[in-house]
Nucleic acid binder design. Structure first.
Length: 757
DNA sequence: CTCTTCCAGCTTTTT
DNA sequence: GCTGGAAGAG
């Protein structure tokens, strides 16, 4: 095959050894995706039918990208027949075909995290438990953990260790909540994200003939990002690969960053035990980054214990050093980052799309966005609230869900009184009571109002009946029309359109746009489905949409823009220039993670991932003050900066060697940050300046600088404004500095800070 | 039953 | 600083 010419020797071997178990350890930027795609292309060219190849990824994006690349290599038709997708989407599909064996129907719907939390809240309330003790997200995490480790409710309630833990945490009834939760999901014909994997395992465990069918079907199995698989996923793969043993997993233990959601780094470490006859391939040459970046990243990851031995190297140019920006505040950090970005774009003639600004938490994006907007630099932002989680989108989707699956309890509760139709909480509560008494769902009650209706007054009864009829109509509609026509009709007849029509606030307009966008998406779905002779009905649309997150929808006009995203979201991507912001203790590494060695190591891997996104240049930044949760904090620079050898850094002066005088990198090394000593500046002799608490400085707007104000300047230090001259952009301040004499500062440029009070 | 106001918790990351 | 839920008034 001529496409093999494009690979180095290790890559070639990894691609052409297609039989038997294989573990590919692929360092960052070592051509992991390339090897995977070429391996699939190789399989296909050897005559393996596309529909017998199973390729699993972690994100829809990765799956789509790979599909596209394979299509380019061997043609789109063949690529389309591959079983390629995320774990969740592939097994959701299989579960749909095998649902009856598990007590679900093939039109089961999917609860997202919010739905499942709402159901848990309802159950906790019904059990008369205190939701301050049984915190819904804690319980949810507990259940999710159980599911990821294949602990069913029955097993949970019999597991002495788990029950002991729950007792110790003062939540002994967690198992009972889990039991009820699972029972309600089944009654509602719904699965949550974890169920998609758990139920697949149950299917394979309890139905050997079904397992055998899929074992035979999939002649070759490939798994991307193997280090991020959890136990549930691991076991599915192990079982499926038993018959043919053609399993190829690709991963990098150094990039394992999802243990918080159950990923087990051991899966990759234990591969050799599961498949003693495995072949190991190590892709160690980084083609992406400069030697400076690769070496710096190696410094960082070298601080971790227990890795698969490997030596990642680059033969690229040395490149620029890693620049460190230090800012007084989070706002100024945004300012400095934006400045530097603009400067690089100009001097190096780079498009804005060459830049990424990464951060640890989504909350950090706001100040960065503001700074970019002020500079008129176009940007796109990933993550945050996804399109499909917006209220208005979820509302309309809930109508679709209930249309497809009337037992979907969360969808039912979401829309029974939206838009307002006079069915309030107490009515829903009563419905719930009746439903429980009959061990049935809410919809069953609606269908049997003539039998139980006496419990409602006639007005309410009418409203409930009307709601039932409405959904029945939608059901007919969905079976007769294509997804788009049905969706538009539902949006209208449900009253959602009318509800939003009269809202002319900016939020209201944006809601309307989102609804429109959703409908447009459905239209597109219908057109594609029609063209390819696929099912274009509403249920088919809903199947796909439940597992979709944003990330996907690359909007038009997004080409030349700076990318803003969390480090997690950046995994697998690359950019010429990468900014990593907020390198501060408690933030990165996250405070919660520093408690355990394992947690800290994961944060370090996260930093490693961030560094290795960059091709040419990395810029780190941190701030002395930062608003978090509405409060000002005074972080110290992250330990991670100093874990990079000084020879690769530019502009960072380690704390211990910082001059004690008037420099901004002022914090003296402290064993523990609390209690915090205010750092003050000595009273000046020449001018009467009170002590300044440098930890409480904040930028001040030029307009607000007035005579007699005590200010602080990055270079000259503390001073007193003794006069103002000029107007507008020419406005200048005459300042008497404690140690630097009298200076006139053009306020347009000068960075001036004042003490917050 | 609906609307408004107030308060608590949140912020690590996602299918 | 924001959001979602609780509580209280109409």
């Amino acid at each position: 095959m001529d496409f093999l010419q494009e690979l180095n020797s290790t890559q070639q071997i990894a691609v052409t050894h297609t039989e038997g178990p294989a573990l590919i350890i692929a360092g960052a930027g070592a051509g992991k995706t390339r090897v995977l795609t070429y391996r699939i292309a190789q399989l296909l060219s050897q005559g393996a039918p596309a529909y017998r190849i199973l390729a699993l990824t972690f994100t829809n994006k990765a799956a789509r990208e790979m599909q596209k690349r394979i299509a380019d290599l061997i043609g789109g038709e063949m690529a389309a027949n591959l079983w390629m997708g995320t774990f969740h989407s592939i097994f959701a599909k299989i579960l749909r075909m095998e649902a009856e064996q598990l007590g679900y129907t093939s039109s089961y719907t999917i609860y997202d995290t919010q739905d499942s939390r709402n159901l848990l809240k309802a159950i906790i309330k019904e059990m008369n438990l205190d939701d301050k003790v049984y915190k819904p997200n804690v319980v949810q995490g507990r259940i999710s953990m159980a599911k990821n480790n294949l602990v069913t409710p029955a097993a949970y309630l019999q597991n002495a260790r788990i029950l002991e833990e729950d007792k110790a945490m003062k939540r002994p009834l967690t198992g009972e909540i889990y039991r009820r939760y699972q029972q309600r999901c089944k009654q509602s014909d719904t699965m949550d994200f974890d169920d998609l994997l758990l139920e697949t395992n149950i299917l394979f465990r309890d139905h050997p003939e079904t397992l055998a069918k899929y074992q035979q079907k999939f002649s070759h199995i490939l798994v991307d990002e193997y280090q991020d698989t959890n136990y549930s996923q691991y076991l599915i793969i192990r079982k499926l690969s038993e018959a043919h043993r053609n399993i190829c997993v690709v991963g990098d233990d150094a990039q394992s960053i999802y243990s918080f959601r159950g990923a087990r780094i051991e899966n990759i470490l234990n591969f050799r035990n599961d498949y003693p006859d495995y072949k190991l391939y190590k892709l160690e040459q980084n083609y992406r980054s400069t030697t400076t970046i690769v070496d710096a990243a190696n410094c960082v990851i070298g601080k971790n214990q227990g890795q698969i031995p490997k030596h990642i190297f680059s033969k690229n140019e040395e490149g620029e050093k890693i620049k460190v920006l230090h800012a007084l505040s989070d706002k100024e950090e945004g300012f400095q980052v934006t400045n530097e970005l603009f400067r690089l774009a100009q001097t190096k003639q780079l498009d804005y799309s060459s830049f990424a600004i990464l951060y640890r938490t989504n909350a950090q994006s706001r100040v960065l966005e503001e700074a970019l907007r002020r500079r008129n630099i176009p940007y796109k932002i990933y993550g945050g609230q996804s399109f499909y989680q917006r209220k208005e989108v979820k509302d309309l989707l809930a109508y679709f869900r209930l249309t497809v699956n009337q037992n979907d309890e969360e969808a039912f509760k979401r829309i029974i009184n939206y838009p307002r139709r006079g069915i309030g909480d107490s009515t829903v509560e009563k419905l719930q009571e009746i439903a429980s008494a009959y061990h049935a769902g809410l919809w069953t009650v609606i269908c049997n109002l003539e039998r139980v209706g006496s419990q409602f007054n006639s007005g309410t009864l009418g409203k409930l009946q009307k709601f039932g009829t409405l959904i029945e109509q939608f059901k007919t509609l969905a079976s007769e029309e294509n997804a788009y026509d049905a969706a538009v009709a539902i949006a209208r007849q449900s009253g959602i359109i009318d509800e939003l029509k009269n809202d002319d606030t900016p939020e209201g307009i944006s809601r309307k746009e989102n609804i429109e966008e959703l409908l447009n998406g459905i239209k597109e779905f219908c057109e594609t489905a029609y063209k390819e002779g696929q099912n274009d009905r509403l249920p088919a649309f809903l199947e796909g949409v439940a597992l979709l997150t944003d990330q996907d929808n690359e909007k038009e006009g997004d080409q030349d823009k700076v990318t803003l995203m969390t480090i997690h979201a950046s995994k697998g991507l690359e950019f010429p220039v990468v900014f990593i912001s907020g390198l501060e203790e408690e933030l990165f590494p996250a405070q919660q993670s520093t408690q355990t060695a394992a947690g800290l190591e994961e944060e370090r891997r996260l930093f490693y991932v961030a560094l290795t996104r960059a091709e040419k240049q990395v810029i780190l930044s941190y701030a002395n003050t930062r608003y978090r949760n509405g409060q000002i904090t005074y972080p110290r620079p992250s330990r991670f900066i100093e874990e990079i050898a000084a020879e690769y850094l530019d502009g960072y002066i380690p704390l211990r060697s910082a001059p004690s005088g008037f420099k901004l990198r002022n914090a003296t090394p402290q064993a523990s940050p609390q209690p915090r000593q205010p750092i003050t500046i000595q009273r000046a002799k020449a001018v009467d300046i009170p002590p300044i608490d440098r930890t409480r400085l904040q930028p001040v707007d030029a307009n607000r600088v007035v005579p007699d104000m005590i200010i602080y300047h990055p270079t000259f230090g503390a001073g007193k404004v003794i006069g103002i001259e000029g107007l507008g952009t020419q406005k200048k301040a005459k300042v008497a500095f404690a140690e630097g004499g009298i200076r006139v500062l053009l306020l347009k440029f000068a960075k001036i800070y004042t003490q917050a009070d």
